[in-house]
């Protein structure tokens, strides 16, 4: 699972450099993000702009990260592609997460 973390003055950006978060990699994804959030920085912005496919296993892993981080370290999402946004919408998870169109927008909103 290829992810990269970049600390900005107004947040920690975690970019997923993979096209798919599915049942084959959901656990790996959760572990990789868990390791990446050891770095300081708030809020944590998960950049999903490279992800073109997310199934309910992938969604469950994103929710697991949100719960793992707890209220002290809010997890926000940015750059959802249309098919990923649809999964959040159909499951109403779009009402749970703060979702930004872009990473710069998310960082600006947090600043």
């Amino acid at each position: 699972m290829d992810i990269s973390a970049t600390l900005n003055p107004t947040g920690l950006v975690i970019r997923v450099n993979e096209a798919r978060i599915d049942a084959a990699v959901a656990i790996e994804f959760k572990e990789a993000v868990r390791a990446a959030v050891d770095a300081p920085g708030n809020p944590i912005i998960l950049d999903l702009s490279k992800v073109t496919f997310l199934d309910s296993s992938g969604l469950g892993a994103v929710v697991a990260v949100l719960k793992l981080l707890g209220p002290e370290r809010p997890l926000q999402l940015a750059g959802l592609t249309p098919s990923v946004a649809k999964v959040f919408r159909l499951t109403r998870m779009d009402s749970i997460f703060t979702i930004h169109e872009t990473v710069p927008g998310a960082l600006k909103a947090a600043g």
């Binding site: 296993s57 469950g60 719960k67």
Partner: peptide, 11 residues
């Protein structure tokens, strides 16, 4: 939310 969110059951 925030801690009782489901991680499955969406399929």
């Amino acid at each position: 939310p925030p801690l009782e969110l489901p991680e499955g059951g969406f399929g």
